[in-house]
Design a protein around this nucleic acid. Structure first.
Lengths: 157, 157
DNA sequence: TGATATTACTTGCCCAGGCAAGTCATCTGG
DNA sequence: CCAGATGACTTGCCTGGGCAAGTAATATCA
């Protein structure tokens, strides 16, 4: 494909518009369900979920930020809110005081457990149910390539 | 696929995480380029682009909102900014005074033309270049189904 | 025909997130 | 061993967007 031509052809336009719809409307739909049923955003859910699968429920903030595709200021403010609700605790990394370790508390794990069923059901309804097994595989392949390119783009910045 | 089981299996987790990365990081990458090079957001670019392809460069706000997957308050505020820069004009629809018609001005069209080349190049680099023709077709098929489901969700909700 | 409902949009208030500047801890070169 | 550089957050300021309430125009129906 030639990146130098300054326009998209019709097929590309269709795909592009569809992708835009998904990246705009899917987060909106997820946020709405989570906000209504659990009072948290999709992003906040992702932070809880990441921490819950980490070793000892603990990660450095910078690592967590990368895993959640977040900036550090954004994550820092989420952590403020989470500490206020006692869902996580922060402490300096004993190995290197510049790092901060975040650990999911039992209350945080419980919040995640409460929120998960409806959220997962929503994800299944919106993303998995409409697709056949083959379509899911193809989607995964294509999105992986795009995700890798976009990640690289943001890191180079 | 059974929506009732409350968890995702490993394959689903992988796909889900990849999709999350794309819906979070792709808009961020697009916004950054547009903000840097043109001083507008990806969403605002989409509004200009939609208007530019409409008959007489004119659409009802409610129609434009639907086409851009936007809420009406959000679009209303974008229109305030655009009118301030004289990129659009608003006027009541003569056929039905409840509707408002938005028309792209010549200045607005020019802003779009200036912004387009770099933005389109970015879209190609991030979305199209990493994929083969077959992968693009498959991606379009899968995303169309998801987009349709999500749109329906948001309209009902 | 006039009161009420509905539709399309706007406004106000609030909060989340981006960016730039500040702080604190560690590394590095002299 | 100690200044300056680097890295990891944190804070403050500002803007964008969501929601709920308000307004204006049209439809409905007694």
């Amino acid at each position: 494909m030639d990146s130098r031509s300054p326009w998209l052809d019709d097929d590309q336009q269709d795909l592009w518009q569809t992708l835009l719809t998904v990246v705009i409307a899917l987060p909106a739909a997820l946020d709405r369900q989570l906000q209504r049923d659990a009072g948290i955003s999709n992003f906040e859910y992702g932070v809880l979920a990441r921490l819950s699968t980490a070793d000892e429920s603990t990660l450095r903030l910078s690592t967590l930020a990368r895993l959640c595709d977040s900036t550090l200021p954004r994550l820092s403010k989420v952590m403020d809110r989470f500490e206020g609700r006692a869902w996580v605790v922060r402490r300096p990394d004993p190995d290197d005081g510049r790092y901060t370790l975040a650990t999911l508390t039992e209350a945080g794990r419980q919040k995640l457990a409460e929120s998960a069923p409806e959220h997962v059901a929503q994800v299944k309804r919106l993303v998995f149910d409409p697709l056949t097994a083959a379509q899911r595989r193809h989607l995964g392949t294509a999105l992986s390539r795009i995700a890798a390119t976009v990640r690289q783009e943001l890191e180079e910045g």
